[in-house]
Amino acid sequence: MKTSRDLPNAPAASPNALPTDLIGREFSPNPGYLNTASHGLLPARAARRLREAVEDLTVGRIDQEALIEEVEAARVLWARLVGVAPERVALGSTVAAQVSVVAAALPRGAEVLTVEGEFSSVPTPFLHADDLRLRVVPPAGLADSVGPDTALVAVSAAQSADGRIADLAAVREAARAHGARILVDATQAAGWMDYDAEADDFVVCGTYKWLLGPRGASFMVVPPDGGGLRPVQANWFAGADRWESCYGPVRDLAPTAARFDLAPAYLPWLGTARALEVIEEVGIDAIRAHDLALAERFRSGLERLGRPAAPESAGSPIVSVPGAGAAVEELARAGVSVAARDGGLRASFHLYTTEADVDRALNALEDTSVDTPIDVPG
């Protein structure tokens, strides 16, 4: 599998411009698609690999060892993206299932601190775990709410509903001061944010949004010491020697974070590996600059229309327009794909989005200004 390090004479990506030839090869024009925060678009190379794999499955060309090599390539690419060793990365299928592994390791009575409006995959496993105390606080007060009873702080790096960026530096400082660990959900951040997972204890991430993969694959970063996790989902794939772990109880698990792996559903991982190649080749600096510039263009246009974005969206490629959720269906009829979240309209911008897409959305919103009531916060 080629990565950017294998490409001959590959030019370094500019922090201010995307490689338009690569973007043109990987993405068909999708006018008005402003909904990456719900699901990213699949790159062409990922789609080709999935078609090849489906064809192989129909005619019996199934080489599981070769498929696992591709799964392992995804682990390496993700680890490089977030700045950790691959040995710290476990493979899963959903964020909630991996958060549940962390919840199962906490002592009875432990306090878990999270924020209001957090995506449910983060707090729900703690709520339903044995005898844990889940405390929910306003996002702005998260760091100040960490106390001596806090065992774990669980928060998204970027919030799903409104794009709010967590002050992770403040949370880390408060957690360390009180001996608490941190779990960060990077699902709405990895792929555009310059995020360093080395700074946090546990990191979980679904791959089907900003990482552009198919749904059904997720990553978890664990501390070098394992963080006290127990392999409650242990299986043959988590064995120290997988092909010697197919029968009977698996007594020797992998010495790395792979001991927390789930046996992979191959197709999502094949697509994820190719999608991560694209992210790496384009470069996070270029993606971030592009995404944030488009988000700012959208915010400026909203101001001109008298429909200001939520201030919580500042500095994020996820932009929320409070009270405008009713406009989502009308925008869809105009060929603009956004989402309704928490009563608001949510638009999100990624490497395949263009200025023309932003302007299309603004024009559609202007056309709905008379018929669609908008509650502008005062």
Rank of each mutant, 00 (worst) to 15 (best):
P8Q: 09
P8I: 04
P11Q: 06
P15E: 13
N16C: 07
D21Y: 02
D21C: 02
L22D: 05
I23D: 07
A37Q: 14
S38H: 00
G40S: 04
L42C: 05
A44C: 05
A46D: 04
R48K: 14
I62M: 12
Q64G: 01
Q64R: 10
V76R: 15
L77T: 03
R80K: 01
R88C: 03
V89G: 07
A96Y: 01
A97L: 11
V102Y: 08
V102C: 08
A104W: 02
G109Y: 13
G109L: 12
V112I: 13
T114C: 04
V115M: 03
T124F: 07
H128G: 06
A140K: 14
L142F: 09
D144Q: 15
S145F: 04
T150L: 00
A151N: 07
G163I: 11
A166F: 11
D167V: 01
A170G: 13
R172G: 12
A175G: 14
A175V: 13
R176M: 04
R181K: 10
Q188P: 00
G206A: 14
K209G: 11
P214V: 12
A217L: 09
F219I: 11
N235L: 08
F237Y: 14
G239N: 15
A240I: 02
Y247W: 08
D252R: 09
L253Q: 15
P255F: 08
T256K: 07
R259Q: 14
Y266V: 09
A273C: 02
L276H: 00
L276Q: 05
D285F: 01
R288G: 05
A289I: 00
A289W: 05
E296M: 03
E296V: 04
S300Y: 05
L302F: 12
L302N: 10
S313K: 01
I318V: 15
V321T: 10
V328Q: 15
E330I: 00
E330W: 14
A334M: 02
A339E: 08
R341F: 00
L345E: 09
R346G: 08
H350E: 03
L351R: 07
T353Y: 06
E355P: 05
D357M: 10
L365V: 03
L365M: 03
D367T: 08
V370D: 12
D371K: 08
D371N: 07
